[in-house]
Simulated scan of single mutants.
Amino acid sequence: MGFAVLTIASTLAALVTSAGAAAPAASPTSAAATPTSTPSAEPGTMLVVGDSYSSYYGNRHSRYPGWWALLGAELGLEPRLEAAAGTGFLARADSCASTRFRARLDTVRATDPEILMIEGGRNDWRRCTADGRVVESTRTEIEQATDAFFAELAGLWDELNRPRADVYVLSPWGTTKARKGRIIRPIVREAAQRHGFSWVETRPLSLEQAPDGIHPNNEGSRFLHEQVLQNSDLSQRFQRA
């Protein structure tokens, strides 16, 4: 009788031990170790406000890719273009029907880009009068228009809670109106820097790079894109493609 009780007790103990070993409780450590997948982030936006140095050209797959398209691909950013030929901080094109850069600030606000490129100044040697005539600009008029634009942009950019250094400013030039360039480009540079934006120095395009003395060919667009990379911190900030 005693032997039978002992045998049953031993058997029950073995079953309990066996069941406990076969089904261990899950620990927080083992649950946390389960791998999870994270969706890839969308590329940031690079908005370009500019003139014909930007508007005459297409994306990097087109026949004539723009400097901005090459730059966006290099930095892994999605470029968006807000540019019109003949326009600038003061200029409104030959027809006087286009808008100055200030009119495009609503697009800046709506887009809220990661990077903002301001390309211009080449056309600001001229302006439109109230009756629609094109006349030569004075230095004071260029200074006032340029500073007014950057002052308004600074306020908008602060509202978006973005660092002002994320605005990059360049003023490309060709071989024509070189004397105007020596006046206008420093005005643009000083106004941009005064408001805390990043100035990007670019060398004037040669006739091989801009056969009409103004607009870059493919070689010129590549040159401008390389100048922006060399003379800014963008290549350090963004992963190259």
Rank of each mutant, 00 (worst) to 15 (best):
W67F: 14
V48R: 09
L81H: 04
S95R: 05
G20I: 14
C96G: 01
E143Q: 07
R102N: 08
C96F: 06
S62C: 03
A31Q: 15
V16T: 03
Y57P: 02
L81Y: 04
E42F: 15
R126D: 02
Y64N: 08
E42P: 11
A103N: 05
G20T: 13
L105N: 01
A148I: 04
A21Y: 12
F149A: 00
L47W: 10
P39M: 01
T99P: 03
P43V: 00
W68G: 00
R139C: 11
S30E: 15
L77D: 05
G120S: 07
G50D: 08
G76P: 01
G120L: 11
L71R: 10
R92N: 00
A23Q: 15
A130I: 11
D131K: 13
A23I: 10
C96I: 01
G132D: 12
G76A: 00
S55Y: 03
E78P: 03
A21L: 15
T17Q: 10
N123F: 07
S27G: 05
A130S: 13
V49Y: 05
F89Y: 02
A148W: 08
P28W: 05
L15S: 06
C96H: 02
Y53D: 01
A22I: 06
R126W: 10
A19F: 14
G72C: 08
A21T: 07
P28L: 04
A21C: 11
A110G: 10
A23T: 10
M117K: 07
L105W: 10
T111I: 11
Y57F: 10
G121M: 06
T140A: 14
T129Q: 10
P39A: 01
H61T: 05
G132Y: 14
E82W: 07
T107L: 13
D131P: 10
A148V: 04
N123Y: 04
P113T: 04
I118Y: 00
A148S: 09
E141Y: 12
P79Q: 04
T29R: 15
I115Q: 03
F101D: 03
P113G: 01
D51Y: 09
T87L: 06
S30V: 14
L77I: 00
S98V: 01
A93R: 04
V16I: 12
S27Y: 09
L71E: 12
A32K: 12
T17A: 13
R126M: 11
A22F: 13
E74A: 08
E143G: 00
E141T: 12
A148H: 05
R127S: 01
G88R: 06
T129R: 09
G66N: 00
T99G: 04
R92Y: 03
A73K: 15
V108F: 11
L71K: 08
G72L: 11
D51L: 06
Y64Q: 06
A83S: 08
L90E: 01
G76F: 01
S37D: 11
G132A: 12
A32F: 14
L105I: 04
E42K: 15
F149W: 11
L81P: 06
D124A: 02
L116S: 02
E136I: 14
Y53E: 02
F149G: 00
S18E: 15
R139L: 14
G66M: 02
N59R: 10
N123E: 01
E141F: 13
A103K: 12
T45D: 11
P113D: 04
A73I: 09
E141M: 13
G132I: 11
Q144P: 10
R139N: 12
G58L: 08
M46T: 00
R127H: 05
R122Y: 09
S98W: 09
S95P: 06
A130D: 14
C96N: 00
W68Q: 03
